[in-house]
């Protein structure tokens, strides 16, 4: 397929889906039972003035189709109203939480990818060997474990019993760090356990995919050719098999990255990590609808964006798409 047509199609698709998701978001928060103006206010603040004010902010006094128009303008301007739990514009509350989540999830994904791919390569290379059977079965078990449960076990063992790592938060409360290095060290110390939990639960999935992908590539003719030429085992594995088998894993990693918030909610809740996940958990507990709405839109947009990036990467990584 010609390059421009492929890209245009993919981008148009993504834009269309984002528009549909945004429209869905509008409906979701307006078809909820009860008065939307009330939903967008904290409990116990239902005074007439507050409701009128809220109606004005969200244009709820207008007919539905006009509201829909205003909704687009507001979303484009980033006007999601005020978070009533924190008495600040939603944009600020959400903005503050993005970086911690990206750091946590980025580190976790990096480890998961490396562990998953390396283990998967070795497991797929020696099919049905001891290492393969052990790692695949372990992978299946890890894959079935709820993330938050693993997190709680780690806290019980590593931070309560052994006391090696702190059991939550990004930095200790009430401690002032004198040097930058001390602060960075404390941060990494806090980051380790949550990132490890994240990595372990995702690595299992990448390992299973990588292993199956290796197996299928090893049946290809060009591997036979390489062997016939007398290429050493190591070079066949790392020079011919692994690079070709990487494709599905990379795509999966990329797409999972979009769904990162779902995983982050659980890990961040258990470890009290001040990112988007904890924010959405808390806003759910407090019924902080403006924040929920913004986070939900952001999360959906992230998935669509990551899908688009995966498609674009595919174009460059897989020559078959170009043909």
């Amino acid at each position: 397929m010609d390059k421009r047509r492929y890209f245009t199609r993919k981008i148009l698709n993504a834009v269309l889906t984002i528009i549909l998701v945004a429209a869905f978001n509008f409906m979701l928060f307006r078809i909820l039972p009860g008065n939307p103006a009330r939903l967008l206010l904290p409990k116990g603040h239902y005074s007439t003035i507050a409701i009128a004010q809220q109606k004005k902010i969200f244009h709820l006094d207008k007919p539905l189709w006009e509201q829909f128009g205003y909704y687009w303008v507001d979303t484009a301007e980033g006007n999601f109203g005020n978070s009533y739990a924190q008495h600040e514009p939603v944009v600020q509350v959400v903005g503050r939480a993005i970086v911690p989540t990206l750091v946590l999830v980025g580190t976790g994904t990096l480890f998961a990818t490396v562990i998953g791919i390396v283990v998967g390569v070795f497991a797929g290379w020696r099919r049905n060997g001891t290492f393969d059977i052990a790692s695949t079965n372990l992978g299946m078990v890890l894959y079935s474990m709820p993330t938050f449960w693993v997190a709680m076990i780690f806290i019980l063992y590593f931070s309560v019993k052994l006391g090696w790592f702190p059991s939550g938060r990004m930095l200790d409360v009430g401690v002032t760090y004198t040097s930058f290095i001390g602060k960075a060290g404390a941060f990494l110390h806090h980051l380790f356990l949550p990132a490890l939990v994240f990595a372990i639960t995702y690595a299992a999935e990448y390992e299973l995919i990588m292993r199956s992908s290796i197996t299928s590539v090893m049946k290809e003719d060009f591997i036979l050719t390489a062997r016939a030429k007398g290429v050493s085992d190591t070079r066949v594995l790392w020079g011919h098999v692994a690079p070709n088998a990487m494709l599905p894993s990379i795509t999966l990693v990329m797409m999972n990255f979009g769904f990162v918030l779902s995983g982050a909610i659980l890990v961040e809740t258990v470890f009290n990590w001040p990112g988007l996940g904890l924010l959405s958990y808390n806003s759910m507990l407090e019924r902080d609808y403006p924040v929920m709405q913004a986070v939900f839109l952001l999360a959906s947009a992230a998935v669509i964006l990551c899908n688009l990036i995966a498609d674009i990467m595919y174009y460059y990584l897989d020559p078959r798409v170009k043909a």
Binding site: S212, T215, S216, M255, V303
Partner: peptide, 30 residues
């Protein structure tokens, strides 16, 4: 898992693995 990509319906199987992940967050489609 082992033969997902080798089967003729490789993409489909991959999609299914993506779907399975749903519980943890990757309800990804490919």
């Amino acid at each position: 898992f082992t033969d997902a990509a080798a089967a003729p319906s490789g993409a489909l199987d991959l999609a299914r693995v993506g779907v399975e992940t749903g519980g943890r967050g990757g309800r990804g489609d490919d």
